[in-house]
């Protein structure tokens, strides 16, 4: 399997995701945002960070980068595309995923581990989570408050496109288990074809017992098995 991680000025999780991909024998290349073309890849990752210092709106300037034309083509042709944190924000700004990520409800930067209930297992990113009721992953963001109008939320629900919701360890989903004010506790969503996943939590940060957990590994194992 071949992957490309797109690097923007201000990306800061690009090397973490590269380490994670390589750990699972995915052949990865780092691609600068201003490059004219994307090398042949099975998976493209938009990493976390603060691309362009979050100027204007988070992910907005990055979504207009040169390489994004090819990334969008890759996704429209059915290629896998994963946006983590700032990557998710970029995906909503390109319009590949609906909605937008607003500032956290309590206006605080959040950096902690959260529990997630996996809502959709039937996609190439998540099928390994079938055996788990809930998973634990870190979040680290200031704008993770997922918002979409009622019609869009209903579409996500009706088409089973919500991948993860913030929950407690037992899988209860309510206001108390919602760290940032997201609509319906949404932490990650898929596109209709389920080849694009945008998520605020960081799977690349939990890929080894030395990093206190391996719930992130399951996603990369899902990807190489599929």
């Amino acid at each position: 399997m071949k992957s490309s991680v797109i690097v923007f000025p201000g990306s800061n999780c690009d090397r973490d995701i590269a380490v994670a991909l390589e750990k699972f024998q995915i052949k990865n290349q780092m691609i600068w945002h201003n490059d004219a073309s994307l090398p042949k890849s099975d998976l493209v990752v938009l990493p976390g960070g603060f691309s362009y210092g979050d100027y204007l709106r988070t992910g907005c300037i990055a979504s207009k980068s040169k390489i994004l034309d090819d990334v969008i083509k890759h996704a429209k042709n059915g290629g896998l595309l994963l946006g983590i944190c700032n990557g998710f924000q970029i995906l909503t700004e390109t319009g590949l995923l609906p909605g937008v990520l607003l500032r956290n409800k309590k206006l605080r930067f959040l950096s902690k581990n959260v529990f997630l209930k996996v809502i959709n297992f039937n996609n190439r990113f998540c099928h390994n989570y079938k055996k788990k009721d809930t998973i634990e992953l870190p979040i680290a963001h200031n704008e993770g408050n997922y918002f979409a109008n009622e019609k869009e939320i209903k579409k996500l629900e009706d088409n089973d496109l919500i991948a993860f919701k913030y929950s407690d360890k037992e899988g209860n989903i309510n206001e108390n288990t919602n760290p940032n004010g997201s609509s319906q506790n949404i932490a990650g969503i898929l596109n209709n074809k389920k080849n694009i996943l945008g998520m605020m939590p960081h799977p690349e940060r939990l890929i080894d017992p030395l990093l206190s957990g391996e719930d992130g590994s399951l996603m990369f194992e899902s990807l190489i098995k599929s």
Partner: peptide
């Protein structure tokens, strides 16, 4: 196209 996000 750029300065506003019409979603919000």
């Amino acid at each position: 196209k750029l300065l506003s996000n019409v979603v919000i």
